[in-house]
Structure formats: structure tokens, C-alpha cells
């Protein structure tokens, strides 16, 4: 039997495939239902926050910042309550990261404010002396992509039954309705910001990447 396998490349390949696939089937599949259940109080992201999440991904913030607080005292003291599986139920993709060159951001919304983020993105050393993080000035120039964010929200609502448009949950509605909600949420953030560039652009109806990103970071609690 063994020798036969060695001489029949096709069945050999099938054998290898079964051996390597088995682990995945056992470890991954059975937990899908259970770990997908959200913790009470966890809400899907609003469209503006999603747009900010896209900025976070576009600039690979997750290359240096984790979003996963491990259950140790040293971590809960530093970052707050340790992470629960259900808190990530609406994270597509997950953004746990694999390296903490900078601090964890899982609950950054609890202890940083809009203007802190604004200074920090313009010039990290101005708020954190010694920081090695680069400045992200281009976020003050580029516009956030609200349409794609809305498209994503609508997609997860339709395909994965993410509870948008339900009681106590973010409302999506049509694109125009959603755009209005986005402008409202953005207005509050822009009001807290100093940058005249961002403020003037907002008057023209443009939402800069930085606004969306701050909305996202503030939502991390």
C-alpha cells in the first residue's frame, strides 16, 4: 500500500491533502457559530467609523498596533478590560495585529480624545516625546471614501445579517440617509478639531480621512 502511494502521484497528492486538511477541519470549523456571537452591547460600526477603519487598514496601522488585550494584570492596568471574543463579532477583517511597536488600541477611545489624535497624526513627537511613529499628514489631504464604507455596511447587512437598521443599532437606510448621518457624526468631530484645512473642506462637504479615522478610534471602547 505504501509503495503504491509512492508511485501514484495522484493518490499521493490526495493522501497529502487529506492529512493537511484534517487539522483545519477539526480546529477551525466547529467554532464558527459560537465565537461569532456578539457580546451584549456590541454594535456594528457606523458608516463613518467603517470609512475610518478602511483608513486604518490602508495605512496598515495594524503593522505596529495590536487590538487585543490579553488577560494579564500588566495589560489590563495599561489598556483596560481584557478582550472578549464577542466584542469582535463585527470586525471584518479582525485587526488584532501581531506586533506592538506602538501600544494596544483596543480601547483607545476610552482615554484619548479627538484633538489628541489630531496633534498626534500631524506630529507624534508633539504629544509623545520620543515617539518613533511617522506623522500621517496625508490623512488631512485625502478624502475618506464614504461610498465604499456604505457599500460594505450594506453588504454585511445583506450577506451576513449584521443587525443594521434595528432598534438601538446604527441606522443605514438609503445612501442619502446614511450620508446625512455621516455628516452629522463628522460635524461633531470636525468641531473638536483645530485644522482649518479640514474645517474648510468639511464646509464644502468633503470628509477628510483623518475625520473618519478619529471617528473609528473614538469608537474603540
Amino acid at each position: 500500500m505504501f509503495h503504491w502511494l509512492e508511485k501514484n502521484p495522484f493518490f499521493f497528492a490526495v493522501g497529502v491533502f487529506l492529512v493537511i486538511a484534517y487539522a483545519g477541519i477539526v480546529t477551525i470549523l466547529p467554532d464558527f457559530m459560537e465565537s461569532a456571537r456578539p457580546v451584549t452591547g456590541t454594535k456594528p460600526y457606523t458608516v463613518l467609523e467603517l470609512a475610518g477603519r478602511h483608513v486604518y487598514i490602508k495605512d496598515s496601522c495594524n503593522a505596529c498596533h495590536s487590538q487585543l488585550i490579553r488577560p494579564f494584570k500588566s495589560e489590563t492596568d495599561r489598556y483596560g478590560m481584557y478582550s472578549l471574543s464577542g466584542e469582535y463579532a463585527y470586525d471584518r477583517p479582525f485587526l488584532w495585529g501581531s506586533k506592538r511597536t506602538g501600544p494596544d488600541l483596543m480601547r483607545v477611545g476610552n482615554y484619548r480624545t479627538t484633538d489628541w489624535h489630531e496633534y498626534h497624526m500631524l506630529d507624534p513627537i508633539s504629544v509623545v516625546p520620543g515617539s518613533i511613529m511617522p506623522a500621517y499628514k496625508h490623512m488631512f489631504k485625502n478624502n475618506a471614501d464614504i461610498e465604499t464604507a456604505y457599500a460594505e455596511a450594506l453588504t454585511v447587512k445583506k450577506v451576513f445579517n449584521v443587525p443594521y437598521d434595528q432598534a438601538d443599532m446604527p441606522q443605514l437606510g438609503t445612501y442619502d440617509e446614511s450620508k446625512k448621518a455621516v455628516m452629522e457624526q463628522a460635524a461633531a468631530i470636525v468641531a473638536d478639531m483645530k485644522s482649518t484645512e479640514v474645517k474648510e473642506a468639511f464646509k464644502r462637504g468633503e470628509i477628510k480621512e483623518i475625520v473618519a479615522l478619529i471617528a473609528y478610534l473614538n469608537s474603540l471602547k
Binding site: 467554532d31 461569532a36 471584518r92 479582525f94 488584532w96
Partner: peptide, 11 residues
Amino acid sequence: VSMYAGSNDAM
């Protein structure tokens, strides 16, 4: 958008 969410996606 990823088919998997959160911990599943991580796994």
C-alpha cells in the same frame, strides 16, 4: 469584505 468575522477570522 472578509467572510469571517473577529475571532473566526483570526483563527
